[in-house]
Design a binder for these strands. Structure first.
Length: 421
DNA sequence: CTATAACTCTCAA
DNA sequence: CTAACGTTGAGAGTTATAG
């Protein structure tokens, strides 16, 4: 019955520290794509009051004063470290749900005889020793409570140094613990709900736990009703071990500098299609519609604003990068307006269906380049993505995102390994 | 009218 | 020197549309 939620401590920062020990005990932030906002903060940075999502330019002064090291995000590195961590964690239970890049649930059915706090400590030690990443472990009867327990473990609200087992607490201890935690910490309770619950006088976990499920369902939603049940040890969310195929695949990015010309926008759109189509093929799906969208910078209030998207239905569902690209570029031509400073473009593949049973169209014109796509995927898998690509993606890619402080590909690129003498 | 498609809002990491 | 603020995906609920 018990479930553990294992979560890496400021995961991206910890990944960087594994390969550069000089970052240990130093304030470190990892920035989002385009070096925009802080997406991971070391404990030292959190102590300086830097909030999640703070734009880098806003904390620049503080960073200078306190020697904050800022790094561009290096997703190849984090994905690799994540895989290693998940493999180690899988050794601790036959039931694992990988929930995100840095956390997973472990089903602990049949482990009731173990000392779960001790088991949690073993998990922490092994991941630290074998992968180098510090993690915390929350244990409870439901996923929602396990997430909450993990929060307690991270904040060390219940002792036991990085592990919190809620099932071991008495009713009185639970009441005390939950009374001290804001509702917003609960999984599924975001900004809007926190505010509205607050207006009803429900501002702590304990208050929501005690709220009447029927009333709350009527006032808010089934989702909140389920959350309340989960807070009361009634499990409503099962462990999902196999990730289902995506229903939509999106690829979008901000540019390193403003883009004005449709030619550059087209290169970006073609590049994003290539990324999305690769994911599409890897899950064995076909796309029935292609969406393309462009926008100016909404934060630059003094500049003229423009934002538009278009969804293009395909005559036949396809996974052919070249066909999807043609559709997207056709759409781009329709929505493009000259004279604007574009900051971002994106594409989405929608209406996904399985490759095995393609919907046949009586009026089908062209055939997909199936073999070409297979060859392209193999080459790019071996030599890195973008090695073989359509000319539409462009060569220079002057629009590509800013990554001024990226760490080496420690685990993914031989010639970026630092030389130790 | 109903069934479904399309869109909006919220949440999460 | 200046300007500079992420990405991807899901689900629920609402609105628009087709038949």
């Amino acid at each position: 019955m018990p479930i553990a939620l294992v979560d890496g401590n400021n995961f991206y920062v910890s990944c960087e520290r594994v390969f550069d020990p000089q970052l240990e005990n130093v304030p470190v932030v990892v920035l989002s794509n385009n070096d925009g906002c802080a997406v991971a903060r070391s404990a030292e940075v959190k102590a300086l009051g830097v909030k999640m999502g703070t734009p880098w330019f806003q904390m620049r002064e503080l960073a200078g004063k306190h020697g904050i090291v800022a790094l561009s995000s290096n997703y190849a590195l984090y994905a690799d470290m994540s895989n290693r961590m998940m493999q180690v964690l899988a050794q601790f239970s036959p039931d694992q749900e990988i929930y995100s890049i840095d956390e997973c649930f472990l089903g602990l059915d049949g482990f009731q005889n173990h000392d779960l706090i001790d088991y949690g400590q073993q998990i922490r030690q092994r991941v630290k020793r074998w992968v180098g990443i510090p993690v915390c472990v929350g244990i409870a009867a439901t996923k929602t409570l396990a997430k909450l327990a993990n929060h307690c473990a991270k904040k060390n609200l219940a002792g036991h140094d990085g592990v919190c087992d809620v099932t071991r607490l008495s009713a009185a201890e639970q009441t005390k613990l939950f009374s001290g935690i804001e509702v917003g910490e609960i999984w599924g309770v975001g900004r809007q709900l926190s505010r509205q619950l607050g207006e009803l006088g429900i501002s702590t976990v304990e208050a929501l736990r005690r709220a009447d499920p029927r009333t709350m369902k009527a006032r808010f939603s089934v989702v909140l009703e389920r959350t309340i049940a989960e807070l009361n040890d009634i499990s409503c969310m099962t462990l999902e071990e196999a990730a289902p195929n995506k229903q939509q695949i999106i690829s979008s990015r901000s540019f390193g500098a403003y883009v004005y010309a449709i030619e550059a926008l087209g290169e970006a759109v073609a590049s994003y299609i290539a990324i999305a189509a690769e994911k599409l093929r890897s899950q064995g799906s076909l796309a029935g519609m292609v969406q393309v969208y462009i926008r100016t910078n909404p934060h630059a209030a003094d500049r003229p604003q423009y934002q538009r998207g278009l969804t293009i239905p395909l005559p036949d569902a396809s996974d052919d990068t070249l066909r999807l690209t043609r559709a997207a570029l056709w759409g781009l031509k329709r929505i493009y307006r000259p004279g604007f400073a574009y900051q971002k473009a994106g594409v989405a593949l929608l209406n996904l269906s399985a490759t095995a049973t393609p919907q046949l169209n009586l009026f089908s014109q062209s055939k997909d380049n199936t073999r070409l796509m297979q060859v392209m995927d193999r080459i790019n898998d071996i030599w890195g993505r973008g090695t073989l690509r359509s000319a539409a993606e462009g060569i220079e890619k002057s629009w590509k995102m800013k990554r001024e402080r990226v760490s080496p590909g420690y685990t993914s690129c031989w010639n970026q390994l630092p030389v130790v003498s």
